[in-house]
């Protein structure tokens, strides 16, 4: 799982309706897998991501390179170095093992072999 996917996940335990995003990462194992750099795609995805959640999550896995405020993506002057850093964080950083904890109800979702398990028991849905 990469941070783009994490930016789309929320807790969905029955009754847990607020403060349930982003899930907090804990005890993670990270693996870097290189992939082709595509600046056009980064410009496409950046404005769609929930930036504050991304920055917060990145810090939980010791990635400190993201600025607190997302630079204006509508202009073309995002420099290559910045985009390459984002490429590394968003598309090459894989969370292989670990846990995601709901900030509201503390429910724990496991990440195993790169796949987060979002399934709940019957009594939790």
């Amino acid at each position: 799982m990469r941070l783009v996917a994490h930016n789309m996940l929320q807790c969905h335990v029955k009754g847990c309706n607020s403060n349930n995003f982003p899930l907090q990462l804990s005890n993670v194992e990270i693996e870097i897998q290189e992939t082709d750099f595509n600046p056009m795609f980064l410009r496409n995805i950046l404005p769609k991501l929930e930036w504050n959640a991304l920055v917060k999550t990145a810090l939980q896995i010791n990635i400190t390179t993201l600025p607190n405020v997302l630079p204006d993506t509508s202009t073309d002057d995002l420099d290559d170095e910045f985009l390459k850093m984002l490429h590394r964080v968003l598309l090459e950083t894989h969370i292989q093992q670990g846990k995601m904890i709901c900030p509201n109800c503390n429910h724990v979702y496991a990440i195993k072999d790169g796949i987060p398990n979002m399934l709940l028991n019957e009594n939790e849905t």
């Binding site: 799982m1 930016n7 996940l9 992939t35």
Partner: peptide, 21 residues
């Protein structure tokens, strides 16, 4: 490269997928 999630689509909310996909 594909990011997988083990998910029951019936019960999962779309709040944070909306407009990203």
């Amino acid at each position: 490269d594909v990011d997988f999630t083990l998910t029951d689509l019936i019960s999962i909310p779309m709040d944070h997928l909306r407009n990203k996909v």
